[in-house]
Design a protein around this nucleic acid. Structure first.
Lengths: 148, 148
DNA sequence: ATTCATACTTACCAAAAAGAGAGTGTCAAA
DNA sequence: TTTGACACTCTCTTTTTGGTAAGTATGAAT
């Protein structure tokens, strides 16, 4: 299940440097571990529902299953359970079962979950700021295809 | 093709506020436009290859097709072409064809592409900082499944 | 006795994404 | 004359993903 090698300080430093700094002297190849790490991260953060659930939960605090299902429009029960479980597994939220009838389960973001929301803020803002530019670029691109 | 309604200032403000600020007084439902926007963004930024290509390109500056293919390990020609085209369409990079034989095509990040890399920095750092915590959480979760 | 609510799980099926591998065109080198 | 480099494209197959719908357990309300 742990599908990549253990991270170490140097890896972390290298990784951060590469994405955040100006291009350093090009070396021949990327550390493969970095790539697997990237893949894994992106996969973690970047499915259809995780960030939306995160957002709803950040907004409303503690919530129950059906309540969440109503907020996150278009999600099926299956996907809701699945995504919630993944997030729980990753430590982004806690799941509290109250042994009553009818059942009551409450979901709540952990500090880790909240911090992910905050971290994602940069991308969010970028997207807002550049949303129209991208749309424009797409229109231009598509138009140039039709002409040729 | 534009599958959601045009964004406006209020939407943008609301969106940013919701992700970045502390939980405001809960209202009953999320603006559906916000969700579509989120979906779209995430889809744009968050596939298997886009960020990796972005990173390689940020590191090395201008690069050719085969060269990129060697750097981005595990990617197939198909996916490389596909991702590159999407990124071009979105205005993240430029594609310059030199009409020589054998063919020579060069890919280079635009300012938009570079700024996306910078924006993604937050998520990157978050992931580095919390990588071990997540792994630990997963191990604990999986272990608790085996016991029960 | 039947229905309802809650929080799921399971089985089945369709659609989408992605990999593998062969083909294309051109010229230059061996 | 065959091979190779480059930057693809095309087709076929496999894998992954996600939706639908039904089933489950429990007790309370009608």
């Amino acid at each position: 299940m742990p599908k990549f090698s253990p991270p170490d300080k140097e890896l972390k430093e290298a990784t951060r440097a590469k994405l955040c700094a100006a291009p350093p002297p090009p070396d021949d190849e990327l550390d493969p571990r970095i790539e697997v790490l990237v893949n894994d991260l992106i996969g973690r953060v970047a499915d259809r529902w995780t960030m939306i659930i995160l957002e709803v939960l950040a907004e409303h605090g503690e919530m129950r299953f059906t309540q969440l299902g109503r907020m996150v429009k278009g999600i099926s029960q299956k996907m809701l359970t699945q995504t919630l479980r993944q997030m729980e597994r990753d430590g982004l939220l806690t799941r509290t079962v109250h042994p009553v009838i009818p059942p009551k389960v409450e979901y709540k973001l952990t500090d880790l979950g909240l911090s992910l929301g905050a971290a994602f803020c940069g991308v969010w803002i970028w997207a807002e700021e550049n949303y129209e530019i991208i749309e424009q670029s797409r229109r231009k691109f598509d138009a140039s295809l039709n002409k040729s």
